[in-house]
Structures are given as structure tokens and as C-alpha cells.
Amino acid sequence: MNATLPDSFDIAAFVAATLAEDLGTIGDITSVAVIPADARFTGVMDSRDPIVVAGLALAEAFFRTLDSDVRIERLVQDGDSVAADTDLLRLEGAGRALLTAERSALNTVQHLSGIATMTRQYVDAMAGTGAILLDTRKTIPGLRVLEKYATRVGGAQNHRMGLWDAAMIKDNHVAVAGGVSEAVRRAKAAGIAHIIVEVDRIDQIEPALAAGATHLLLDNMPPPTLRSAVALVAGRVPTEASGGVNLETIRAIAETGVTYVSVGRLTQSAPAADIGLDFTTA
């Protein structure tokens, strides 16, 4: 696994905004009322289920933001597949600070590890086919960079990060532009190098290629149709299968010879991993 958060992602700003949402203008009234100011706790973050770990650096950032002197020992790394009851982090620091940061840190690691875990399941299900798993733009607003980081941790490749890095001409674009050829012509005239065209019928392939498509998205085609589409394209451009993909169908889809299989549910539907933070006084 070779996945890192981009340098442009501002961890400090993300942590500050998340904590501000939780603390409001008053703060953690429970910890202030219940925990003595000088109380110290040791604790362990652990996974209750087998998971692929993602987001530990962010968890650490939450704790360090509220207690700059906290001692943290990272016991595993992002991308590790761990068994149930595996300890992920060990930490020791100011009791109030650690309890205040707990939920924000857990929410982040649970969400990202859930995505990484589901992604790894899909990667394993299509192993050996030669096809590459892609994520999509079906992400929670504001969390795209983190969620797409988690899919990379799980073994997928990022598709478009946004609307800016490739043209994707879909049925509504074609309808408004007046046809596939006209839509692609306008994209080329705008100087766009990477032009993805969505097709859902075999007879749309040649017009799309003739117009200058550099990537075909084969939408909601069953495996026999995908095989025919791949044979017709004959390697002229990359092909991507999309739609109706789940763990039961992905291998048959990947075995059709497509270059990529894209799966929106990696970021849209992954359940949160069951991860806890248990504090002790020893």
C-alpha cells in the first residue's frame, strides 16, 4: 500500500473545524464537570472487528491538538489488515483532553477504516483478473480527499478527484449538447485532453471513438455485453465498467477484459468500522 494524504490537505484546519463542531461555544461540559483538571489517563484504541486500518495520523492530530504533550504509540499502520481485538494506538495524557478528543478521533478512523476495509474486499474479489478498481465522486461533501485516501489505502485507484481533472460526458450532457459527436467536439475544442464518454449500448461505441473519446465508460452492461464491447474497442482506449457492481458481481465483470471497474458504494455505502477507545488508570 502506497497511500498518503496530499500535501495540500490541511490536517490542522480539518481537526479545528471538527472539534469546533463538537465543542460549540461552551466546550465539553461533561469532562470539565466530572474529570479533575490534573487527572491523567492511559488508553488504547482498538478494533472490535477485522479491518483495514486508515486514518491513524488524523486521530493522533485530534489528541495532540488538545494535549500537545500526549504520548502516543502507534501499534499498526494505515493499510494493515488486522484481526478483531487488535490494539491500534496506545496513548497517555491529560484526562480531560483525551476524553474531549475521543469522539472526533474515533469517528474519523471508523469512517475511513470502513471505506478501506470494503475497498480491500472488492480488490480481493477481483484479484488476478487484470482489471483495476476505481472509486467515484460519490463522496460525502467536504470529505472527498479523506475518503479517496481511504480507497487508496484499501487498494483502489482514484478516478476523478473533481470536475476539473477530466471531462466525463454522460447522457444529460449529450442531450443538451445535441449528440455525442457534438459534445466531444466541444470538449476537444476546449483543450481537454482526457475525455470520458459514457455509453450504455454497443452501437454508441464507434461514434464515441470517432468523435475523439479517450476513455469509454460502459454503463450498466451485463458481462456478455461487456465482452462484446471490449472486443469492439480492441484496446483503442481504456474501458471502464460501471453500474450494478457489488461483491457478488465484480469478478464476472472484471473477467470481461475491461481496464477498470468503478464502484460508487466504496465511499457511498461503506459501514463504519467498530473501533473503540478504552481508558484505564494503569
Rank of each mutant, 00 (worst) to 15 (best):
V76D: 08
P223K: 07
H111S: 11
T280G: 15
V180K: 00
I202R: 12
V258T: 05
R74I: 10
A270M: 02
V174T: 09
A84D: 11
I196P: 00
P50F: 00
V174M: 05
D80P: 10
G43L: 08
A116K: 00
G130N: 11
F63L: 15
G79S: 06
T256Q: 02
A125Q: 00
I72W: 13
D85L: 13
A177K: 03
I26S: 12
A131L: 03
A59T: 12
S181M: 09
L89W: 04
A241K: 06
R227Q: 14
G257C: 08
D87P: 14
R64M: 09
E255R: 13
D28C: 10
V153Q: 00
V184E: 01
T42E: 15
T139E: 04
M118G: 01
T259F: 09
R227I: 11
T151F: 04
A177T: 05
L98R: 05
V176S: 12
I169W: 00
L232K: 13
Y149W: 01
V230N: 04
G162D: 12
D28R: 09
I253K: 07
G276K: 11
A213R: 00
T256G: 05
A12M: 06
A16L: 11
A127D: 08
D10T: 04
F62T: 03
G24D: 10
R64L: 14
D78R: 06
G27E: 05
E73I: 13
A252D: 14
T25L: 14
S113R: 06
Y260A: 03
Q268H: 15
V230M: 01
A127W: 00
A231E: 15
R265W: 13
P207G: 02
A20E: 15
V82D: 12
Y149N: 05
T136A: 04
A210M: 14
L23A: 11
Q77L: 12
R160P: 05
